[in-house]
């Protein structure tokens, strides 16, 4: 790899994971996915880290998967037992695993989107608690235009994030939507202007998250994830 990705920067209690392959609009190969996994785990283990933020260097958040380096190189050792060929190779197994690590992380997770949040970028964004975007950011999952589809769990997450109505246009047509449209349907929580620097524009929001009680956040998020999956009576009894 030419340079480290993600870049890991600290702003006090806020941990920034910055995708750093700007020439390819931060499209991700095996090593970049696994780099995200390692950086996320390190952030989870560090008690001083209160918020974990994913963003991209250059012109885009993340333009998808970099299919080229998906040969044998770079497959993480920790997943060697799960390297089972699928119809499109082994890539989806890694993406499925790392996006799940974000989704199950019990610290606040935030995606700061600009430029493009497409394919794998859209998968990572939909695995975070909060999604902030520039107004004109292009968001979506165009893999269907190649007859392909992702299998990192959009099919579970999207109907729970935005309501099933919007699943069909986003996933069946493969058309990209803007940040503004994503905010209208509830996928994006806050917008900033296209010429804003996302990490600066979001700083106040991120530091407000960092001031929340970490234990309460952890418990509440765990309960929320449980509540999405369990029958009402199970949830209520397990909370008592």
């Amino acid at each position: 790899m030419d340079r480290p990705s993600p870049l890991v920067e600290r702003d006090g209690p806020v941990l920034h994971l910055i995708l750093n392959n700007p020439e390819r609009l931060n499209s991700l190969g095996f090593e970049q996915h696994e780099g995200l996994y390692d950086a996320l785990r390190a952030g989870e283990d560090d008690d001083e880290v209160r918020v974990i933020v994913l963003s991209g260097a250059g012109r885009a958040f993340c333009a998808g998967d970099d299919i080229k380096p998906h040969g044998a190189d770079g497959w993480p050792d920790r997943l060697k037992h799960r390297r089972v060929p699928l119809d499109v190779g082994v890539g989806p197994i890694l993406l499925n695993d790392v996006t799940s690590a974000f989704r199950n992380c019990l610290k606040p997770t935030v995606a700061l989107m600009h430029g493009y949040a497409v394919g794998a970028g859209y998968d990572y964004a939909s695995s975070c608690d909060f999604r902030l975007s520039t107004r004109g950011c292009r968001i979506g999952d165009p893999r269907i235009k190649l007859g392909l589809w992702g299998c990192e769990g959009w099919s579970y997450k999207l109907p729970r994030l935005v309501g099933q109505t919007w699943v069909a246009p986003l996933t069946f047509t493969g058309d990209l939507i803007t940040g503004e449209q994503a905010e209208e349907i509830g996928f994006v929580h806050r917008l900033f202007d296209d010429d804003a620097a996302p990490r600066e524009a979001a700083a106040a929001f991120l530091h407000a998250l960092a001031r929340l009680d970490a234990g309460a956040y952890r418990a509440k998020k765990a309960d929320l994830l449980l509540g999405l999956d369990q029958a009402y009576d199970h949830v209520v009894r397990s909370l008592a």
């Binding site: 119809d87 499925n96 299998c151 990192e152 579970y156 996933t171 999405l228």
Partner: peptide, 21 residues
């Protein structure tokens, strides 16, 4: 999508991969 409306997260993630194998 329709099947996973009724699944728990971990089940759904396995389902995603299983249908491709």
């Amino acid at each position: 999508t329709l099947a996973q409306l009724d699944m728990a997260f971990e089940t759904a993630m396995s389902h995603c991969l299983a249908v491709r194998q």
